[in-house]
Simulated assay, not measured.
Amino acid sequence: MALIPSTILTGFLGAGKTTLLKRILQEDHGLKIAVIENEFGQENIDNDILVQHSDEQIVEMNNGCICCTVRGDLIVALAKLAQKRDAGEIAFDRIVIETTGLANPGPVAQTFFVDEEVGSYYLLDAVVTVVDARHAMMQLDEHEEAQRQVGFADKILISKTDLVEPAQLDALMARLKRINPRAPISRSDFGRAPLAEVLDLRGFNLNDKLDIDPAFLTEAEASGHNHDDEHEHVHTEACDHAGHDQNNHHHSHHSDDIAAFVFKSERAFDPARLDQFLAGLVNVFGPRMLRYKGVLLMEGAERKVVFQGVHQIMGSDLGAKWGETEERRSKMVFIGKNLPKDIFIRGLEQCLV
């Protein structure tokens, strides 16, 4: 039986997640989507979306979508939904999970890989992060959770762009790309985002035989420095925290604990050395490694190796064959909290043939 595609919708308080969900729950799009509100407070989806009684857990909408309120364990809720679906009590073909505005999406994402029952029913499709153009700069300065939400994203939707000047929007987009160069960015004012930019993104594939989008490092490379040596990493202000006032918005750049850097090489990796080094990285720095992803050139291999991970969970698989005229090189991006870039890069260089 095919796995149920699942989307994690995250974003800081007031970013516009509920507005987007309202559209999903009410629009006549022909899709049967189960929306899970992963809230632990008294308030759930706004009353103007649906009337929620205290004894109701699942409400079916007019367009065939389902709204489910989760007041306890997400794993239990996902399992119950799958069981009800198998029993024919409810019908849905995909799931959207909305996290709280202060949530770190990492543990939610890991749920799909560490729990066998969840993994037997669901496939994590993507983490989609909504960013408030009006308040994002301040939120990123003051709240690590906001940085984590951006760092985990496979797709970023910017809301409230009508409330800021073009220069402010450009500065925000530049900062988002420095934090996470692999996530495409689109606008989503008033929840108006095509569902194709929210669902079926295939942005989160651990051990999946799908080639990585060859352009996923384009933004990182464009914003990096052109070195003539074998590797390149994106410099951010996180390289030097000394003397920087994070709350001073007169600076054109901001110091973010969550940042990205890129490694590239035209030399092939030695598989055994790389496996050993990556295992060591994950063991030591796993909690600080939000997302990492790459297309690898291995010694003697005619196919690309696709690798990706979140925190301590890492997977790799064979990708497409290298094209006859294609430039063979490894490209890797790491997104994390205060990761020691020099250690990563020197270690990776030592794994090259």
Rank of each mutant, 00 (worst) to 15 (best):
F92T: 03
I33D: 05
H53I: 00
N44V: 04
I36V: 15
T99R: 00
E60T: 11
Q139L: 12
F40E: 15
V70K: 13
L140A: 10
L124W: 02
F113Q: 08
M137W: 07
C68W: 03
N63L: 11
D115C: 02
A103W: 09
I90F: 13
I58C: 07
P107I: 00
N38K: 13
Q139K: 07
V76N: 14
D115G: 03
E144S: 10
E144V: 15
V76Q: 15
Y121A: 07
I36C: 05
A126F: 00
N38S: 12
Q110A: 03
L124M: 06
D93S: 05
D46V: 06
R134W: 06
A87D: 14
E144M: 14
D93N: 04
V130K: 01
V96C: 10
Q110D: 09
F112V: 02
D141C: 12
I66Q: 13
I58T: 14
T69L: 11
F92M: 11
Q42I: 05
Y122T: 00
T100V: 12
A79V: 15
P105G: 02
N62G: 10
Y122D: 01
V76S: 15
R94G: 03
T69E: 09
G72I: 14
I49R: 08
C68F: 10
G101L: 04
V35H: 04
K80L: 13
E43Q: 13
K32P: 01
G101P: 06
F40I: 15
E98I: 03
V70W: 08
L50K: 12
E142S: 07
E116R: 03
V35P: 04
F113V: 07
N47G: 15
M61V: 10
E116L: 08
D55H: 11
I49N: 03
T129R: 00
I75A: 15
L78R: 12
Y122R: 01
S54H: 10
G119L: 03
K32V: 00
V128W: 06
E43R: 07
V59W: 04
D46F: 10
L123T: 08
A87Q: 11
A77K: 13
M137R: 14
I45N: 01
V76L: 14
V114P: 00
V128K: 01
E56C: 06
G72P: 02
A109E: 01
H135D: 04
D141T: 14
E98K: 00
R85I: 09
G72F: 12
V76E: 15
M138A: 15
M138L: 13
A87V: 01
Y122C: 00
M137N: 09
T111L: 03
R85T: 06
H135P: 00
A87K: 12
R134N: 11
G88I: 11
V96A: 13
K80I: 12
T111F: 01
Q110H: 07
I49C: 03
H143W: 08
D73N: 15
F92Q: 09
I49E: 02
E117M: 05
I97L: 05
L74D: 07
D141K: 12
R94C: 12
L102F: 13
A91F: 02
V96L: 07
L102D: 04
N38Y: 13
V130I: 03
D125H: 09
E43P: 05
G119F: 00
A109R: 01
F113G: 04
L81W: 12
S120D: 06
E116C: 05
L102P: 02
R71V: 14
